[in-house]
Computed example of a mutant assay.
Amino acid sequence: MIGIVRIIVVVAALVALSLSLIPVQYVFLKLERGWKRSLPNFFHRIVARLLGFRIRIVGEMQEGRPLLLVSNHVSWSDIVILSAAGKVSFIAKSEVRNWPVFGMFAVLQRTVFVERERRGKTGEQASEIARRLAEGDAMVLFPEGTTSDGNRVLPFKTALFGAAHAAIREMDLKEVIVQPVAIAYTGVHGMPMGRYFRPIASWPGDVELMPHLKGVLREGAIDVEIRFGEPVIVTAGTDRKQLARTMENRVRDLLQSALLGREIKSETDEAASASR
């Protein structure tokens, strides 16, 4: 009974919040100001609290621009979590645009929609991402191409890493910062989540959305950790596939360290340890 009451209260609060801020964001999208980046961050910070996500941030999002964030992908809630952590926009598969409610929010957050299966459009899509990077937007790429079970990182698809090179080539930029990010769902009601309970938060592709959303609303206390790793400075000479492999390895290390409760070691720290 308590779970049902919580779901009703949270849904009512989300509806009220959305109805009050959606018209404002539509106006902001018409203005050439930073408010269109700030409002989604404000909105998702409140949404994260309402949904019961307790967010811990380890490391820092790079302040420099242009910035491409490369993250693992566990659930629909990753959008809420990352957007609550900073002023970001996302790169999402084209189907998301047509999802009820979620599609509208994606548009309002100025998401770049891509058709991953149409290789002939990769260059055009990379150019759109490049334009946004050049304009100062921190763009989030989920290179796994789908959601995982939250316990591992799936192999990265390399195509859209070309957006960094497109920004350098087409937008006359000298370099692009590419930073790895890991999202780890670590606990529920103050207890370690572990592999067995990770499905409370994770949303693999074969799980229906509404039952999963209902489950998250019912729980109301999920701990999640965002880990920002060592960035790579991409120049015209950087190899795209090597960049993808480097990011995949760093995101995997960040995820495992978060799930195991280990502290992050920078490359400088590791080099110092190795020299002892």
Results as ranks from 00 to 15, higher is better:
residue 4 I to R: 12
residue 6 R to P: 01
residue 15 V to Y: 11
residue 21 L to S: 06
residue 27 V to E: 02
residue 30 K to Q: 15
residue 30 K to Y: 05
residue 32 E to M: 00
residue 33 R to S: 11
residue 38 S to C: 00
residue 52 G to A: 04
residue 56 R to S: 12
residue 61 M to D: 02
residue 61 M to L: 10
residue 62 Q to F: 00
residue 63 E to A: 14
residue 66 P to Y: 06
residue 71 S to G: 10
residue 72 N to T: 09
residue 73 H to D: 01
residue 77 S to I: 00
residue 77 S to C: 13
residue 81 I to D: 05
residue 84 A to P: 05
residue 95 E to T: 13
residue 98 N to G: 04
residue 98 N to M: 04
residue 99 W to M: 09
residue 102 F to C: 00
residue 104 M to E: 10
residue 106 A to F: 10
residue 118 R to Q: 14
residue 118 R to D: 15
residue 123 G to E: 07
residue 126 A to H: 03
residue 127 S to A: 15
residue 141 L to W: 03
residue 143 P to N: 08
residue 144 E to T: 09
residue 145 G to Y: 02
residue 147 T to G: 03
residue 152 R to T: 15
residue 156 F to Y: 11
residue 164 A to N: 03
residue 167 A to V: 05
residue 167 A to Q: 01
residue 170 E to G: 15
residue 171 M to S: 13
residue 172 D to E: 12
residue 177 I to W: 10
residue 178 V to M: 04
residue 183 I to M: 07
residue 184 A to R: 07
residue 189 H to W: 05
residue 208 E to Q: 05
residue 210 M to G: 00
residue 217 L to M: 13
residue 219 E to L: 01
residue 224 V to W: 06
residue 229 G to W: 05
residue 230 E to M: 04
residue 230 E to R: 12
residue 237 G to A: 13
residue 239 D to Y: 10
residue 240 R to G: 01
residue 249 N to Q: 15
residue 251 V to F: 10
residue 253 D to G: 07
residue 259 L to Y: 06
residue 269 D to K: 11
residue 269 D to R: 11
residue 273 S to D: 11
residue 273 S to M: 07
